[in-house]
Design a protein around this nucleic acid. Sequence first.
DNA 1: CCCCTCTCCTGATCGC
DNA 2: TGCGATCAGGAGAGGG
Length: 292
Amino acid sequence: MPELPEVETVRQGLQDKLTDRIVTQILGEGGRLVRHNPQGMHDLYAHVEGNRIVDVQRRGKSMWLVLGPGDIAFVIHLGMSGQVRVRTRTAAELARHEHVRFVLDNGKKVSFVDQRTFGHLTVSPLTEDESGRKVPEQVLTLAPDPLEELPLSTWTAPLRRTRRAVKTALLDQKLVSGIGNIYADEALFAAGVAGQRPGVSLSEAEAEAIVGAARDVMIAALHRRGTSFDALYVDTEGNPGSFSSSLQVYSRAGRACPKCGSAIRRIVLGGRSHFHCPSCQPWDQPSVGLKD
DNA sequence: CCCCTCTCCTGATCGC
DNA sequence: TGCGATCAGGAGAGGG
C-alpha cells in the first residue's frame, strides 16, 4: 500500500522522467480521481496542458508536479491502489482502471491508474507553509513527515498531547504525515511501545524512539523500493518493491516475534488491524471504571 | 475542539 | 463449482 516509502519511490521515478517535459495532451475523463477539482477535468486541461513540469516534490503521502512558471501544482495522491506508470508503448484506448493519461513532448505517456479510486488528482496553487517552503494549498493541512529535517519535537509534541492510542495518532496525517498502517506497526514494534498506549502517557524518550523508528524503517523500505503485497503497488516502471520480506510484525499474526519468539498478535485498534508482539510491547490495560 | 464511526471502492478470499 | 459475505485501508464527512 502506498505509504511514504512507496510514494517517494514513485516521486523519484517521476522526477527523473518528467522534469523539464511538457504535457502536450491529456486523455481521459478522470472519473472519481478528479472529484476534488471544483471544475473537474476542466481544471486539469487548463492548468496542465501545454505547460512544463519544473519539479516533482512530496510531503507525506502527497506528491505534486510543479508546473511552470511555478505557482501551480498538480497534486497526486495514490490512496490505496493508485499507480503512475510512464511508458512509451500504450494502446490507443485507456486500459482498465486507467483514468487519465498525459502525453509528453518526448512521446512518453504517463498513466494514472487506480483500481479502487481512493486516490485523487488535483490542481492547487502553491503557497508558503509555516517554514517558508512552497507547497500546494491543500498540503497545508498535512504535518511534516519524519524524513523532513526538522526537530523531533515537531512530531513528538503533538503525539504526546493526544489521548488517542498512539497507533491511531500515528495514522493521523495532521500530527505526523507519511505513516500508514504498515509502517505504524513496524515503528511501534521497533520502538518496543504498545500501540494501545494513549499519546499522553508517552515519555519524551518513548515518543522520540517511535518517531526515530518510523524514520529508520521508512528509509530502509525506501532502499527496497517499498512494500508490495500484491500487484496494487508498483513503481513508475511497473516493478514491485521488495520490503514485504523484511516486515517484522505487519500481517504476521501467529508467527514468531523476531526478537523474543512469542506469537505475534492482531487486534483491532481505531478500526484498523494492529499487529504487535504482546511481550516486546507490553501494555497494562487500565482496569474498567478507573479511567479519569 | 476532540475523537469516534461510517463511507467510498474493487478484487481476493472464505464459508457453505 | 458457484455464490454471497467479509475484509483490506487513506482520509474526509458527520455526529456526539
